[in-house]
Amino acid sequence: MTENRVVRLKSRPATMASRENFDIVDEPVPEPGEGEFLMRADYVSLDPAMRGWIAPGRSYVPPVEIGAVMRGFSAGHVVKSNHPDYREGDAVAGLFGVQRYAVSDGERAVRADTSLAPLEAWIGGLGMPGLTAYFGLLEVGAVKEGDTVVVSAASGAVGSLVGQIAKIKGARAIGIAGGGEKCRYIVDELGFDGAIDYKAQDVSEELKRLCPDRIDVYFENVGGDIMNAVLGHMNTFGRVAVCGLIAHYNATEPPPRLTNLRSILVNRLNVRGFIVFDFAERNAEALTALAAWHSEGRLKFRQDVREGGLDAFPDVLNLLYTGGNFGKLVLKL
């Protein structure tokens, strides 16, 4: 416990991030002060939002500064504590940054109960992706029994949970994913009512077939042509929860024109962007529900755990933007 492997932002990428955009260095392990604890990370979360966090310009949080530790969630164990609520050996998860060791005062950290789910699930289904799916669908999407819910990136960390929670709440769930394997997974394993392979099928035609009564809730993770297609099939007073626009994160050209913008007016749609931090004061409520559904076998988590340690961080991160991951992408340290 003498060296801390750290990923720091070196420069801002123009498109896909690469190894050249980061400094991966060894530094002294920090010491916790009064009211703080030191944690050692075992898993680092790879999330689509990371590309936005290193882009310049105004966003919902300030961009990671050049030279700063890369922002990120991780899960591990407390190795030293001066904090009254955390003891040595406690499993923890939180926004600790992309590094092997981190000091925390407990803000944006939780104790991870590994009797409920493996440690890596606490940065997945019981972490930010789970909270995002829960609040995005139930609060922003205001899903109700009998609704038809469509979710893009449906086999991913957030989308796979959205569809399952929709089913728990008595709604129909239709997922849009890339490739036959992912589409079969969300239907056969997760219980979605239908799936659309955007790589091989006409999304609009499939929506017409699978959603004969049109769409009440659309959970948006992608943007681009898929968003255009879905907007054309929304019901009157439908709700669109805009969680992400991953199709645009590395784009060098303007995004496709929103050709179905008129649908927002004609169908009086409620289109709302949201960030999981908007509901932070209710995280305990969400975690209680998510953990209960998981324990009952009604909510399944799929982790895509990659090896290679922090040196592999830039390459593994880019799997999110090429469709190379299957489930919640996690880097094992």
Results as ranks from 00 to 15, higher is better:
D47G: 12
L231D: 01
A292T: 14
F219G: 01
A280V: 13
R40W: 07
A154Q: 03
I275V: 13
G244C: 04
N221R: 03
L269R: 08
A142E: 15
P255E: 06
P48F: 08
V98A: 02
D311P: 01
N228A: 06
W122F: 05
P28H: 04
H77A: 06
N221G: 11
W293L: 09
K169P: 02
N250G: 07
T2R: 12
N325I: 08
V316D: 00
G136N: 01
G224W: 07
I66Q: 10
P255I: 11
V271N: 09
G130W: 09
R40V: 13
A166I: 00
E36N: 04
R268M: 13
P48W: 06
Q164P: 00
Q99H: 03
V29T: 15
T288H: 08
V103D: 00
A133N: 02
A17R: 02
G191Y: 12
G324I: 11
R298M: 14
V217M: 05
G232N: 07
G324H: 06
L46N: 00
G223P: 04
L207N: 00
L290W: 10
L331F: 13
Y86K: 07
H248P: 01
N267G: 06
T236N: 14
A154D: 03
N267S: 14
I24C: 01
D188R: 11
D113E: 11
A292I: 05
Y218K: 08
R51C: 07
G175R: 02
I264G: 08
W293T: 10
A117C: 13
V217W: 01
H294N: 14
K144W: 05
M1Y: 14
D188T: 06
G124E: 03
V29A: 02
G127I: 07
P62D: 12
R298A: 11
Y218P: 03
A93T: 12
N270C: 12
D23C: 09
E139Q: 12
P62E: 09
F277R: 15
G33T: 10
E34F: 04
D304G: 02
K208E: 15
C211A: 15
A75V: 09
D225G: 08
D147V: 09
A142I: 09
F219H: 04
D193E: 11
A289C: 03
N82M: 00
G178N: 11
F326Q: 06
G141V: 09
R5M: 12
P84I: 11
F301L: 13
Y43S: 06
K199L: 09
V150G: 03
I275E: 00
G244E: 00
D147G: 03
E139V: 13
Y185G: 04
D278S: 09
A251F: 02
T322N: 15
A91L: 10
L9I: 08
P84M: 11
T236P: 06
A289W: 00
V64H: 04
G106K: 08
G170S: 05
